[in-house]
């Protein structure tokens, strides 16, 4: 452990105790994979198209102003 100066009052027992009481020794619950529903996929693809179009427009706006 590196930061001895900061943690001089922390004993191994203190650390072990808080690790147990706050559940740090137990790994977080696994996250199962779920598939996006068709309507969700449609919305995300729609947003992707929206991003693409907006980026082109932002580029046009930028170069229009930057070009005077």
């Amino acid at each position: 452990m590196n930061n001895h100066d900061r943690f001089v009052t922390d004993t191994a027992a203190d650390i072990a105790a808080i690790a147990r009481t706050e559940g740090w020794l137990v790994p977080p619950a696994p996250i199962g994979r779920i598939a996006l529903r068709p309507w969700q996929q449609a919305v995300f693809w729609g947003l992707r198209i929206y991003i693409g179009i907006m980026l082109v427009i932002m580029g046009l706006g930028f170069f229009h102003v930057a070009g005077g």
Partner: peptide, 27 residues
């Protein structure tokens, strides 16, 4: 909180570097 674990048992627990630093912060 130190009463929960015997010192020998506490010494046997190993932590990753990031978890140990985080536990000090939590403490």
């Amino acid at each position: 909180e130190t009463d929960i674990l015997a010192p020998a048992e506490a010494d046997r627990i190993t932590y990753t570097e990031e978890l140990e630093a985080r536990l000090h912060d939590r403490l």
